[in-house]
């Protein structure tokens, strides 16, 4: 018995994730370009907002910038760090805006690649957050007190330190940056691959030689549209999660009683 099977060639993974250099070899590829563009767009928005008259009702970029500032202050800092954490607003605001702008190109036609779907940027940001929260903890509590509080949490029965100390060491000092980076990277990569899969499937079905398969191609096309809309939410959510985790870690390091 012989039967026809619908199949399409799925491109090699590196073809979907690794991009050729824009000009000279080893210089700048699409991911780097998106990162630069994200920073430039962010700088443009906030620079433009800073130039506008603050006394009149905010519109355009000023409105956008103020909404972003209030979002970070009210929904992230006040919820995790309290009023003392307002000094961290510029860092957390930059973190959120940069990640969100790096996520967005995943659904923008022609770009169609979130810069955070590659490990480099999430890893850098996670390591940066790790350095910052450890540095803040050391600065606020002192080197020995900070590590004592991290490795020997107060209130835990001494016998349990045998169990708790290695767990705290691994979870706080090793797993945190790893989990932050992987969470962002894996979510964005999964979204990117889903979009690729449904786009290729739609194309294969809509261009099938067997005409009966063409209407079936509408189904993955609808799924593609739904996932594209869903990725807008995912992009925002991942930026929010990364930023709020950074705030929680910094708050935990600067206020050990939390």
């Amino acid at each position: 018995m012989m039967s026809n099977v619908i199949a399409f060639e799925f491109p090699p993974i590196n073809e979907l994730l690794r991009w050729k250099d824009v000009w000279a070899a080893g210089s700048l590829n699409k991911v780097g370009l998106i990162a630069v563009a994200s920073a430039l767009i962010g700088i443009f928005i906030f620079m433009s907002a800073a130039q506008k008259n603050p006394k009149v009702a905010p519109t355009g970029t000023r409105n956008l910038a103020e909404v972003a500032v209030e979002f970070i202050e009210d929904n992230i800092i006040m919820q995790t760090m309290g009023r003392d954490g307002l000094g961290w607003t510029p860092f957390l605001l930059t973190l959120f805006v940069f990640i969100y702008l790096c996520n967005l190109p995943g659904i923008i036609p022609l770009l169609q690649m979130p810069a955070t779907a590659r490990m480099a940027i999430p890893m850098f940001l996670a390591v940066l957050v790790w350095v910052i929260f450890n540095f803040s903890g050391i600065k606020h509590q002192g080197f020995f007190t900070y590590f004592k509080n991290v490795l020997f949490p107060p209130g835990v029965p001494k016998a349990l330190y045998i169990l708790v100390t290695p767990i705290e060491f691994i979870s706080t000092l090793i797993v945190r940056p790893f989990s932050m980076a992987v969470r962002l990277f894996a979510n964005m990569l999964a979204g990117h691959l889903l979009l690729v899969i449904f786009a290729l499937l739609s194309e294969a079905l809509l261009q099938a030689r067997d005409k009966i398969l063409i209407p079936v191609g509408i189904l993955p096309l609808f799924m593609l549209l739904f996932l594209t809309a869903f990725e807008v939410l995912v992009g925002f959510l991942q930026a929010y999660i990364f930023t709020i985790l950074a705030a929680v870690y910094i708050a935990g390091a600067t206020h050990p009683e939390h």
Partner: peptide, 16 residues
């Protein structure tokens, strides 16, 4: 992670 992506990403973020 590719070093050039790391470099451009980190540089862009730090400038921002």
């Amino acid at each position: 992670p590719e070093p050039k992506e790391l470099l451009w990403g980190a540089g862009s973020f730090l400038v921002f």
